[in-house]
Simulated assay, not measured.
Amino acid sequence: MSSSSSSFAIAPVELGLRDVKLVPLALSHEAGLAAAAADGELWKLRVTSVPAPGETRAYIESALKMREEGNRFAFAVTDEATGEVLGSTSYHDILPAVRRVEIGYTWYAKRCQRTHINTTCKLLMLQHAFEQLGCHVVGWRTDNFNFASQAAIERLGAKKDGVIRGHALRRDGTIRDTVMYSLRSGEWPEAKAQLLYLLDKPRG
């Protein structure tokens, strides 16, 4: 793929593997997204940005505005067979000049946590980023107190770049430190093999 930034763009795309399908987030997902967030009352977690009841439409509208501006592309995570919305994830902080994206704004209904769904989504998004978009680097950022997220990112083979102190506001008004991770294109083959290995393990 050409290294010019002009050829780097995230066009609307659907990504699927086994029983998981990622589709561009749309206003039609409002009810499903609200139901997914309600499973576990995820908006009460101080280290996530899950929409609270009554805020789902604004959450989607914000994501669509960011897509128009070119700095975020949000997906609804769905059950391939039923279309049920299981959560959401995004490419964000898209930097065409250096062919870098980050993966974030990720959350799933409580019943989907600690299942194969997150691994499947990360495989789909990383594969698309490195093999179709031609990314040089894929990054992640997470709250310094979101230890589950940090562990999940590290299981992907990503390297910890460092911590940005006093970086962002949490929903409760406190100021968080942000832990930054990245995976380079040369590290992708090994990370891909590990993700495929994890998906092929028997589910408990």
Rank of each mutant, 00 (worst) to 15 (best):
G173T: 06
A26K: 11
V138T: 04
K159C: 05
I10T: 07
A34P: 09
C112G: 00
P51L: 08
K65E: 13
W43K: 04
K201S: 03
D177Q: 02
R171G: 01
W43P: 02
V77I: 15
H92R: 11
I10Y: 08
K44Q: 15
A63M: 07
P51R: 06
R18E: 14
C135G: 07
P53T: 05
I94P: 07
L17H: 12
P189K: 04
A37W: 09
V85W: 04
T142E: 01
H167I: 00
G173Q: 04
T106W: 09
F130N: 05
Y91T: 07
T89N: 11
R184N: 06
N144F: 11
A109G: 15
Y108H: 10
V163I: 15
Y59K: 01
K159Y: 00
S149D: 05
A81G: 05
R18V: 06
N146W: 04
K122Q: 09
A129P: 06
L123M: 02
H92F: 14
L196C: 02
A193N: 03
S2D: 14
F147E: 15
C121S: 03
T106H: 08
T120C: 07
F130Q: 05
R165Q: 07
S62F: 10
T174H: 09
S90W: 10
K160E: 12
R203S: 13
L22S: 06
E30L: 11
A168V: 10
L133W: 12
L123A: 01
I94V: 14
A152D: 09
Y59V: 02
G87Q: 06
R99Q: 12
I175E: 12
H128A: 02
R141I: 08
I103G: 08
G32C: 04
S182N: 12
D172I: 01
Q113W: 02
T48G: 07
P12A: 08
K44A: 09
L22T: 10
A37R: 09
I117S: 01
R57Q: 14
A76V: 09
D177M: 04
A151F: 00
